[in-house]
Simulated assay, not measured.
Amino acid sequence: MPVLFDAKHVRRAFARAASSYHAAAALQQEVGKRLQESLDYLDNRQPQVVLDVGSGPAHATAAMKKRWPKAQVIALDLALPMLVEARKQAGWWRPFARVCADAGALPLADNSVDVIFSNLCLQWLDDLPAVFAGFRRVLKPGGLLVCSTFGPETLVELRDAFSQADDAPHVSPFVPIAQFGDALMMAGFRDPVLDRDLFTLTYDDVPALMRELKAIGATNAVRNRRHTLTGRGRFAAARSAYEPLRRADGKLPSSWEVIYAQAWAPAPGAPIREQGHDVAAVPLSAIPIRRKPRD
């Protein structure tokens, strides 16, 4: 897989945004609430271990700890300052664990997690099939994955405006819903259900939109981005290109496509899928060995 994102830049951006994230992340909180509704598919099952991947300041983690007070609930995030902020949600009456780690390399044992919850984190990772394979590895057979990500219509107005200013990428690429579902299937998940929403947020001007993106850590992390400051001329050109979209209420629109998915880890003994093909995994103890009789 080609490396699209600068992981160090992603970590630094979210570390800097830790203190401002919750106040600015109204959309992320709304999506998180909708994603939590998918947890109802567990019916009356009480999970023992719940993992929140890309937890940020862990408001969803705290909600799941409240929902399942006897479960071990873990907030996992790439940015340590986010987990420092998460301490505010983990009071002594409902404590949860906090782990600083990469979502693409989960430091958990195989078959150890009942539920994985991941809200608007996966768009920062390059190899979705590999990430989902890691999720499947740590999930128990029959475990539930619920996740969300941004789709390709996200920030399309900003992307188009900057494309008229220069040729450098200014907005991250986002996978379409079909590719997201394919990645789940390639990793061997069963019965995936996908849905999408299209939100339209409004801003006074382009600088206001850019300030909010910075406040939530959603800065341009594409590896081949321009590494110098956007010049006044290019920024003015982008603002001018965005301006015809101004609405009757005087606001500029910004589209955010959100993809939701839920899927189940397969039953014990199901083959692992690699590159779209089933790969049988049989323990040595289960293989009969025929021994030649000695003369």
Rank of each mutant, 00 (worst) to 15 (best):
P2V: 10
P2M: 14
K8P: 04
V10E: 08
R12M: 07
A13S: 11
R16Y: 04
A17G: 03
A25G: 03
S38N: 14
L39W: 01
L39C: 13
R45H: 14
P47G: 12
Q48F: 05
V50R: 11
D52P: 03
S55A: 15
G56A: 08
G56R: 11
A60C: 15
K65P: 01
P69T: 03
A71K: 04
A75M: 08
A79P: 00
P81Q: 13
V84S: 03
A86Y: 09
R87T: 13
Q89G: 02
W92D: 01
V99S: 11
C100A: 15
L106P: 09
A109N: 14
I116A: 13
S118G: 07
L120K: 05
D127F: 08
D127T: 04
V131E: 11
V131F: 10
A133C: 10
G134M: 07
R136C: 03
V138C: 11
G142F: 07
G143A: 13
T149W: 04
G151L: 05
G151C: 02
G151V: 05
P152V: 03
P152D: 05
P152W: 02
E157K: 04
E157G: 10
D160K: 12
S163H: 09
D166W: 03
D166K: 02
V171K: 01
P173I: 03
F174V: 06
F174R: 09
F174L: 12
V175I: 10
V175E: 08
A183F: 03
L184C: 07
L184P: 11
M185Y: 10
A187P: 08
R190W: 06
D191V: 07
P192Q: 01
V193K: 02
T200Q: 14
Y203M: 13
Y203Q: 11
V206P: 05
A208G: 08
R211K: 11
I216M: 01
A221G: 10
T228R: 14
F235Y: 15
A236M: 09
R239D: 09
A241I: 10
Y242T: 10
L245Q: 12
S254L: 12
S254M: 14
I259F: 00
Y260I: 00
Y260N: 01
Y260S: 00
A263T: 07
W264Y: 02
P266M: 02
Q275K: 14
D278T: 00
D278H: 08
D278V: 01
P283S: 06
S285A: 14
A286K: 04
I289D: 01
P293L: 06
P293Q: 03
R294C: 05
